[in-house]
């Protein structure tokens, strides 16, 4: 499928998904209390902005978003766990 065909097929579905996210942010803002200082809110706002950025050659938007929500990997983890290499 070319880009036009994909847009024709998915425009309404993508629109609905974006609206769902917008409504969820509104719901959070409307509710009693505040979660603005919750680190998860910052993650969600950063993720929402990611969709409006251009992709680059190294990482797609989906990969960038996955990494945003991921714990970091420490290449020295085997040493810090005091585990020997085996096999």
């Amino acid at each position: 499928m070319n880009a036009n065909e994909i847009l024709d097929r998915e425009f309404l579905e993508i629109r609905a998904k974006l609206l769902d996210v917008a409504a969820a942010f509104d719901r959070l803002e409307r509710a009693d209390g505040s979660v603005e200082s919750d680190p998860r809110m910052q993650l969600l706002k950063t993720a929402a902005k990611l969709n409006a950025t251009d992709s680059d050659h190294n990482l797609s938007r989906a990969e960038k978003m996955q990494m945003l929500f991921s714990r970091q990997y420490d290449p020295e983890w085997i040493k810090s766990f005091d585990l020997s290499q085996r096999g």
């Binding site: 990494m67 991921s70 970091q72 990997y73 290449p75 983890w77 096999g87």
Partner: peptide, 19 residues
Amino acid sequence: LADKYQGTRMILDMLADHS
């Protein structure tokens, strides 16, 4: 979820040790 990337890399590290 958040543990997938780190855990997958750790698993690949461990697998690399086996024949």
